[in-house]
Design a protein around this nucleic acid. Structure first.
Lengths: 237, 237
DNA sequence: TATTGACTCTGACGTTGCGTCATAGCTTAT
DNA sequence: ATAAGCTATGACGCAACGTCAGAGTCAATA
């Protein structure tokens, strides 16, 4: 019989991990001495190999346990689902890499509304867990995503409108109407935009270099500052 | 000024997360009312955007904090390192996917000594953290990996040797010598193989379908069982 | 004005998969 | 018999929050 240390050296898992797997019932030693020493045999090693296999494939230990304990040891289904999950991760990380490269090159100037969303992954995990196919929520996500990235363009055109007015008085009615339009637009396309939030956004447009540069590039130098003032005006009334 | 809920709705992070970021000093609200209510402004929103950016790129919060707090807000270096990390993850997940596909197809028959090792990732993380370039440990890893996968072939040829002897008595001297050779081989190439461990391995060779099938395919039907008996013999003496 | 309802706060514990002590018991060899 | 080496069981720590629980606040309504 193998002691914990033997198994540890053999498989590379730590003694503490063996303790833990015992504690959670994932890998019980077939025998325990009177002194409480754990002793393992070949069958246990085999089970451990399986555990490590699934662990490597990112299965949570609980799931591994239920897979190995379920009498029908045919995990093809589970693995198929896991592959889909891994593929999502793969895609996601790929996107992150190109995103990171962009940041390196242009200093992260781009306003980025679309990539801040691993909803996809999270939602998919939910799905996989609850097994209601991968059609509905996934399509809804895509839908949302498309409509959102589409609206970003409209969003930017609002700023170029502001740019054209940026030499008039921020309190001017035409300008104030634009602010109202901006607020409505945000409310309709992103989230309910209260006056409070609008104020915060206005401030951020100048204090965040990324937003500032992006807005100025759409409306001309000074547009961001102008928008901020217009918003301040609007919110004071 | 924006309340926690405003910020939450605006950025998508939960109120609890804002509490947390405050607690760890990552994002302190610029003002707090007498009642203790947190109030945020545009600058805070901007900082939060940066936080989310780095968080999305898998930076740990502590690192984000030190990056944003270090006066020289030039994270190019950090991002470059992070990209390398992401690329490693990318590669690793890619390997996992093809590995998982293999398992699906052949039921995971292959003995798998090589993929159970994200040392690469871990070691690399260490490296990145300690900034001593990515040459040395990486090459050492490759070295180790190559020599290991090379030795797997020799390992299998041992089993075909056993296969040829599988109709003689397991106690026969020639067989026992092979067992000794097996033990030495494991000790030299993988880990110190005590008699105890050898016994465990022998048992596993038959109780784990993956090993059994692989060994039998190398030495012929019944080889795994034969090896187990030979080992038992060897260890009793 | 009193009371609802919506919002906020601070703890405290749960989660996942272990690592890291601390303390103590067991085993074996010298 | 004692030291060396192994083992055990807690207990705490980490990352990044989620999830209550209990309690205080704020604005608006009846």
């Amino acid at each position: 019989m193998l002691t914990v240390k033997d198994v540890s050296k053999l498989t590379g898992v730590s003694v503490r991990t063996l303790h833990y797997y015992d504690a959670i019932g994932l890998l019980k030693p077939p025998k325990v001495t009177e002194a409480g020493y754990r002793l393992y045999d070949g069958a246990a090693l085999s089970r451990l190999q399986n555990i490590l296999l699934f662990r490597e494939l990112q299965f949570p230990l609980k799931e591994i346990k239920s897979i190995l304990d379920s009498s029908d040891f045919n995990p093809k289904e589970a693995i198929a689902q896991q592959i889909e999950l891994l593929e999502l991760q793969y895609k996601h990380i790929g996107e992150l890499i190109s995103f990171a490269r962009e940041i390196q090159n242009n200093g992260g100037n781009k306003m980025n509304f679309d990539i801040f969303n691993n909803d996809e992954l999270e939602q998919y995990k939910e799905e996989v867990r609850e097994r209601w196919g991968n059609t509905r929520a996934f399509k809804e996500y895509k839908q949302r995503n498309v409509s959102q990235s589409g609206s970003v363009n409209e969003f930017m055109s609002l700023f170029s409108d502001f740019g054209e007015m940026r030499n008039t008085d921020p309190a001017e009615k035409s300008v104030q109407d634009k602010v109202r339009a901006l607020q409505s637009f945000i409310t309709e396309n992103f989230y309910t935009c209260t006056d409070e939030i609008l104020m915060g956004l206005g401030e951020m447009y100048v204090s965040d270099e990324r937003f500032k540069q992006n807005i100025d590039s759409a409306g001309g130098e000074g547009t961001a500052e102008f928008v901020k003032q217009a918003i301040a005006c609007y919110c004071e009334k």
